[in-house]
Amino acid sequence: MSIQHFRVALIPFFAAFCLPVFAHPETLVKVKDAEDQLGARVGYIELDLNSGKILESFRPEERFPMMSTFKVLLCGAVLSRVDAGQEQLGRRIHYSQNDLVEYSPVTEKHLTDGMTVRELCSAAITMSDNTAANLLLTTIGGPKELTAFLHNMGDHVTRLDRWEPELNEAIPNDERDTTMPAAMATTLRKLLTGELLTLASRQQLIDWMEADKVAGPLLRSALPAGWFIADKSGAGERGSRGIIAALGPDGKPSRIVVIYTTGSQATMDERNRQIAEIGASLIKHW
């Protein structure tokens, strides 16, 4: 067993022997301040990774656009098919120029040779490549099948209805392509620590998230040296922004954090800054 596999296998073990965790309302004060600064709703939840206990939450059962955070769930569904012998990570998928959609920095470079399922998941999570996500959605049967996968996990809230990039439209009061912070946090925890996926697939999923290259201005910008984070960000229309993450000190994750916002007129930089400040408060009061 590799060191990384050992780390993920012992996530519940280490967490069980940690000192009790206590909620700190100071972080919620910052979440509410972010709402004021952005002029928009902000949803927040913080779960203990081992027990699933909610440590703090704000608007945990209000719907927010998922945006690209759905790509972690998508690759979880792909990995479940791999575990069941219905898919192979090494299978190569070929596609054409007509398949390319807006923001496809990886797939646009491989029109000639195609990409493997493993490479597509890596591109979808680490670079948020939209064509990679659409190609992977095709392998599982489309958005409705991802929703069905989530329902089978016990998540009857999260739903995907459309493809990239239309799913980022974020129309107010439109339930399409949305989740709730509580539902997303619980589902992410199941994917990373539950028995739904094999140990190898859980490790692969967290490795992809740990290698995320496009979430630097968010929670990662607030992390002290030595902290662990595996995350996936999302951005959408109407001032929408979000991030889902597993993080913790001492090089291992111990909490799940989900943050979503929508309806702001603020710039992307300002949305990023507010999420980073929430992260800084979380870490300060850990």
Rank of each mutant, 00 (worst) to 15 (best):
His24Leu: 09
His24Glu: 06
His24Lys: 09
His24Asp: 12
Glu26Pro: 10
Thr27Ala: 05
Leu28Val: 08
Val29Ile: 14
Lys30Ala: 15
Val31Ser: 13
Asp33Arg: 08
Ala34Pro: 08
Ala34Cys: 10
Asp36Lys: 07
Gln37Asn: 06
Leu38Arg: 03
Gly39His: 12
Gly39Ile: 14
Ala40Phe: 09
Arg41Met: 15
Arg41Val: 08
Val42His: 12
Gly43Glu: 06
Gly43Arg: 08
Ile45Thr: 14
Ile45Phe: 12
Asp48Lys: 11
Leu49Pro: 00
Leu49Gln: 00
Asn50Cys: 01
Ser51Asn: 09
Ser51Trp: 01
Gly52Arg: 10
Gly52Lys: 09
Lys53Thr: 10
Lys53Pro: 03
Ile54Cys: 06
Ile54Pro: 05
Glu56Cys: 01
Arg59Glu: 06
Arg59Val: 04
Arg59Ser: 03
Glu61Leu: 07
Arg63Ser: 06
Phe64Gln: 03
Pro65Ser: 03
Pro65Val: 01
Pro65Thr: 05
Pro65Arg: 02
Met66Phe: 01
Met66Leu: 10
Met67Ile: 15
Met67His: 06
Ser68Val: 07
Phe70Asp: 13
Phe70Arg: 02
Lys71Thr: 14
Lys71Ala: 15
Val72Pro: 13
Leu73Asp: 04
Leu74Thr: 01
Leu74Trp: 02
Cys75His: 00
Val78Asp: 07
Val78Gly: 01
Val78Arg: 02
Leu79Ile: 04
Leu79Phe: 05
Leu79Cys: 01
Arg81Ala: 07
Arg81Tyr: 11
Asp83Tyr: 02
Gly85Tyr: 11
Gly85Thr: 03
Gln86Ala: 07
Glu87Leu: 08
Glu87His: 05
Gln88Ala: 12
Leu89Thr: 04
Leu89Pro: 01
Leu89Gly: 01
Leu89Ala: 05
Gly90Gln: 11
Arg91Trp: 07
Arg92Pro: 08
Arg92Asn: 09
Arg92Thr: 14
Ile93Tyr: 01
Ile93Gly: 00
Asn98Ser: 11
Asn98Leu: 12
Leu100Tyr: 09
Val101Asn: 09
Tyr103Gly: 14
Ser104Ile: 11
Ser104Asp: 05
Leu111Arg: 03
Leu111Glu: 08
Leu111Cys: 01
Thr112Met: 06
Asp113Gly: 07
Gly114Pro: 12
Val117Ser: 06
Glu119Asp: 13
Leu120Glu: 08
Cys121Gln: 00
Ser122Met: 09
Ser122Lys: 07
Ala123Phe: 03
Ala124Tyr: 04
Ala124Gln: 01
Ile125Gln: 04
Thr126Met: 12
Met127Ile: 08
Ser128Gly: 15
Asp129Ser: 02
Asp129Val: 01
Thr131His: 06
Ala132Leu: 05
Ala132Trp: 04
Ala133Glu: 01
Leu135Lys: 03
Leu136Val: 04
Leu136Gln: 08
Thr138Asp: 10
Thr138Val: 07
Thr139Tyr: 02
Thr139Arg: 07
Ile140Ala: 01
Gly141Arg: 02
Gly141Asp: 01
Gly142Thr: 00
Pro143Tyr: 02
Pro143Glu: 04
Pro143Phe: 06
Leu146Gly: 05
Thr147Ala: 06
Thr147Gly: 05
Thr147Leu: 05
Phe149His: 02
His151Met: 06
Met153Lys: 06
Met153Ile: 07
Asp155Cys: 08
Asp155Val: 12
Asp155Glu: 13
His156Val: 11
Val157Met: 14
Val157Glu: 09
Thr158Ser: 13
Asp161His: 03
Asp161Ser: 00
Arg162Ala: 00
Glu164Thr: 09
Asn168Phe: 10
Glu169Val: 00
Asn173Thr: 12
Asn173Ala: 05
Asn173Phe: 06
Asp174Asn: 04
Asp174Thr: 04
Glu175Lys: 04
Arg176Ala: 00
Asp177His: 08
Thr179Gln: 14
Met180Asn: 11
Pro181Phe: 00
Pro181Gly: 02
Ala183Gln: 06
Ala185Met: 08
Thr187Ser: 10
Thr187Phe: 00
Leu188Trp: 15
Arg189Leu: 15
Leu191Thr: 12
Leu192Gln: 14
Thr193Ser: 10
Leu196Phe: 11
Thr198Asp: 03
Thr198Asn: 03
Leu199Gln: 10
Ser201Gln: 01
Ser201Pro: 04
Arg202Ile: 01
Gln203Pro: 02
Gln204His: 10
Ile206Gly: 06
Ile206Met: 05
Asp207His: 03
Trp208Gln: 05
Trp208Val: 05
Trp208Cys: 04
Met209Leu: 13
Met209Gly: 08
Glu210Tyr: 05
Glu210Asp: 13
Glu210Val: 13
Asp212Trp: 03
Lys213Asn: 01
Lys213Ala: 07
Val214Ser: 14
Ala215Trp: 04
Gly216Phe: 14
Gly216His: 13
Pro217Asn: 14
Arg220Cys: 11
Ala222Met: 13
Ala222Lys: 15
Leu223Met: 15
Ala225Asn: 04
Ala225Ile: 08
Ala225Lys: 01
Gly226Lys: 11
Gly226Ser: 07
Trp227Ile: 07
Trp227Arg: 06
Ile229Thr: 10
Ala230Glu: 11
Ala230Met: 09
Asp231Ala: 15
Asp231Phe: 10
Lys232Ala: 14
Lys232Tyr: 12
Lys232Gly: 14
Lys232Cys: 14
Ser233Glu: 15
Gly234Tyr: 13
Gly234Trp: 09
Gly236Ser: 00
Gly236Lys: 15
Glu237Lys: 06
Glu237Asn: 00
Gly239Pro: 10
Ser240Asn: 03
Ser240Tyr: 15
Ser240Thr: 07
Arg241Lys: 14
Gly242Phe: 13
Ile243Thr: 13
Ile243Leu: 07
Gly248Arg: 07
Asp250Gly: 10
Gly251His: 08
Gly251Asn: 13
Gly251Ile: 08
Gly251Met: 12
Ser254Trp: 13
Val257Phe: 15
Val257Trp: 14
Val257Asn: 15
Val257Met: 14
Val257Ala: 14
Val258Asp: 02
Ile259Ala: 12
Tyr260Trp: 13
Ser264Lys: 00
Gln265Tyr: 09
Thr267Tyr: 05
Met268Asp: 15
Asp269Trp: 10
Glu270Thr: 13
Asn272Glu: 09
Arg273His: 14
Gln274Glu: 11
Ala276His: 14
Ala276Pro: 11
Glu277Leu: 08
Ile278Met: 14
Gly279Ala: 14
Ser281Asn: 15
Leu282Trp: 11
Leu282Thr: 04
Leu282Gly: 11
Ile283Arg: 09
Ile283Leu: 13
His285Gln: 04
